[in-house]
Design a protein around this nucleic acid. Structure first.
Lengths: 186, 186
DNA sequence: GTCTATAGAAAGATAGAC
DNA sequence: GTCTATCTTTCTATAGAC
């Protein structure tokens, strides 16, 4: 007979959440079903709905600990562009970008889009605009967000060869000055 | 009794295609079903599969006449940034961006992502890189593509307030120098 | 050329057994 | 705490009538 999981609700819950985050990042909200997630977590489908209250609530929780600016805003102003570019492009940080990827792959879903708009504005644009200061700070911050979104989409989602085949250093050298120019006064 | 459509296959086909393009742009591949499209085209569901051979083939046809560079590559080099920024942001051209939006909202679908990667590389990056010339032309062209993708996602898909509330002129002034810098020699 | 009717598959959710 | 079994809905696709 098939064995059942050891009886540990919180561990099972954490395993499901981790599996869900990865699955949503790879296939988006509409591209994933609960049976896939359960299989990845090596547990039964019923547990997913049981612990998270449904697919939508699971998604919200999976993307909520997202990409934040805390790692970057402590840097010197002159290093902003290079540091942010490095952060986005580095494969080592890839786990940290899973929530962003999950949201970017879920734009066919209205709820997910609304959630992303909220996260983007409150967790990224607003604090970055505060840090930038001066004229048009929000517009500049949102433009930086757009560049990050575009890079993540083209490189990590679509895997455009022109962006995946160069070295990280080459892409960084192209990207960093763009980001840097957006935080400097005109 | 309900009336049936006038018997005109090519007109019906064209109506369905137009309705599909708009529906896919608004909700993405996975967010649209054939009944919605048929309802928009004011025809029967069965006709959609009948004329296009299924949902996937309909999608391919709806996004194939996409965003091309032909409108922009004839411009003077010094006007590239402003012209491209204007083109992307102008609401008048919005119909022309429907295929791009449809693809961006369909990244949860593997086939649609592969299709977009192909379209992006062959219809945008390659010809633009040719036009740019010189060192790192492909990387620069792909970076321009990424910026456009990010702007389209943040502004048109997510409707980020920080990008939708400023005037088009303000956004253009922020975006144009970035695009321009990517076609100039370092 | 267009429509009705339906087959067949897939997915979210939940009741109840163990 | 976990699993089996099933209900219900939704969707694509197609056969066949008009």
């Amino acid at each position: 007979m098939l064995e059942t999981r050891p009886r540990n609700a919180s561990a099972t819950r954490a395993t499901i959440l981790k599996a869900a985050r990865r699955a949503f990042a790879q296939h988006g909200y509409d591209g994933v079903n609960l049976r896939d997630i359960a299989a990845r977590a090596n547990c039964n489908v019923a547990l997913v709905s049981r612990y998270f209250g449904g697919k939508e609530k699971l998604f919200r929780e999976a993307v909520s600990e997202g990409f934040t600016l805390s790692d970057i805003s402590g840097t010197e102003r002159q290093d902003f562009g290079p540091n942010l570019a490095q952060y986005i492009l580095s494969k080592r940080q890839r786990g940290a970008l899973e929530p962003l990827q999950a949201l970017l792959r879920s734009t066919s879903n209205a709820s997910a889009s609304a959630l992303m708009q909220d996260i983007l504005e409150t967790q990224f644009v607003a604090p970055l605009a505060e840090w930038i200061g001066g004229e048009n700070a929000k517009l500049r911050a949102a433009t930086i967000a757009a560049i990050i979104i575009g890079m993540a989409t083209a490189r990590d989602i679509l895997e455009t060869p022109s962006l995946t085949s160069p070295t990280i250093a080459q892409v960084t050298d192209t990207l960093a000055p763009l980001l840097q120019s957006l935080i400097e006064p005109c």
